[in-house]
Design a protein around this nucleic acid. Structure first.
Length: 297
DNA sequence: AAACCGTGGGA
DNA sequence: TTCCCAAGGTT
């Protein structure tokens, strides 16, 4: 192997060995983690910071320690347990994935990228991550952290392209070690999360700062990806509506939902959208709840 | 393929 | 205070 590449691996892996966080979905003392725990964590971590996932993950695994346990619950229970993680459709998709695992995979989380990709809510990143972290398969795991690290170190640019390019895949494959690709994936992700951060990178703590093309180029400022609007959007309204239902143990009257937003047209459209998505259920005339409220179990 | 889908902590 | 953005996926 290219000796320069080999020393890059060594430096990143040595840094990881020292600074690796002991997260509950990671395996203990070198052993493989529980695939279901990996899967739950990956769903929760989609666009949500580790610190906010931690307590919800612990509670979730306590209640539903296996896919079959979640599949036996109602989707409403899943949405409520999801709490304030955001993007609650992920809770529905995780529930649907658990159901598919029970019915089509005998309750075991699939161990191939292809089978994982078939599950609801599992895209390229999540399929590769589960196959890698839970089963040790040699997969290219390209998350936002890895893409940022590679963009800076190799391309010399502050930010990666908006969406994954074939060039990034080619580079990622090239850099991926033959052995221990799973540890390499975790290490490069961790480096991006803890050191090579988006906002204020801690280059003084970086194990490969001397090889960084972005640093060598004098930290040229890339174009900021344009932020998403928030105030006044349907997402904000949906969030408020669902918060009311999530925090109420009992179904609520429409009046309680009407109170969260002035614009009645937008409010009703959002409520209809939530019903359509399966995040909310109509219990009776003008009475709403999270789905499965009266199903029992 | 661009737009949509939540939330809250830190800079 | 405002803005950024965090282990993406779906349509």
């Amino acid at each position: 192997m290219d000796p320069q590449l080999s020393s890059l691996h060594d430096d990143v892996l040595a840094w990881f060995a020292e600074h690796r966080r002991d997260l509950p979905w990671r395996g203990r003392d070198g052993g493989r983690p529980d695939p279901w725990a990996v899967m739950v964590s990956e769903f929760m971590l989609q666009q949500t910071p580790v610190a906010r996932v931690l307590p919800v993950f612990e509670a979730w695994m306590e209640v539903w320690p296996a896919a079959a346990d979640l599949a036996a619950a109602t989707t409403g229970d899943a949405v409520r347990a999801w709490g304030r993680l955001g993007y609650p459709r992920r809770a529905l998709r995780l529930h649907a994935a658990a159901t598919a695992i029970v019915h089509q995979h005998a309750g075991r989380v699939p161990d191939t990228y292809e089978a994982l990709l078939e599950l609801p809510g599992v895209g390229d990143y999540t399929a590769a991550a589960i196959a890698s972290f839970a089963y040790g398969r040699r997969m290219l795991v390209l998350d936002t952290n890895v893409r940022r690290v590679f963009s800076r170190v190799v391309r010399g640019q502050q930010y990666p392209p908006r969406s994954v390019t074939s060039e990034e895949r080619r580079l990622g494959q090239e850099l991926m070690p033959v052995e221990g690709a799973d540890v390499w994936a975790a290490a490069t992700m961790e480096l991006g999360a803890l050191v090579c951060t988006a906002r204020a990178p801690r280059c003084d703590a970086c194990p490969i700062v001397d090889r960084c093309a972005w640093r060598a180029a004098g930290y040229p400022q890339g174009e900021q990806p344009k932020g998403q609007t928030w105030h006044g959007t349907d997402r904000q309204v949906r969030g408020r509506l669902l918060a009311v239902l999530r925090e109420s143990p009992e179904p609520v009257l429409k009046g309680a939902l009407d109170a969260v937003w002035d614009d009645a047209g937008q409010r009703d459209r959002c409520l209809a959208g939530l019903l359509d998505d399966g995040l909310v259920e109509l219990v009776a005339d003008d009475v709403f709840a999270l789905p499965g409220h009266d199903e029992g179990r």
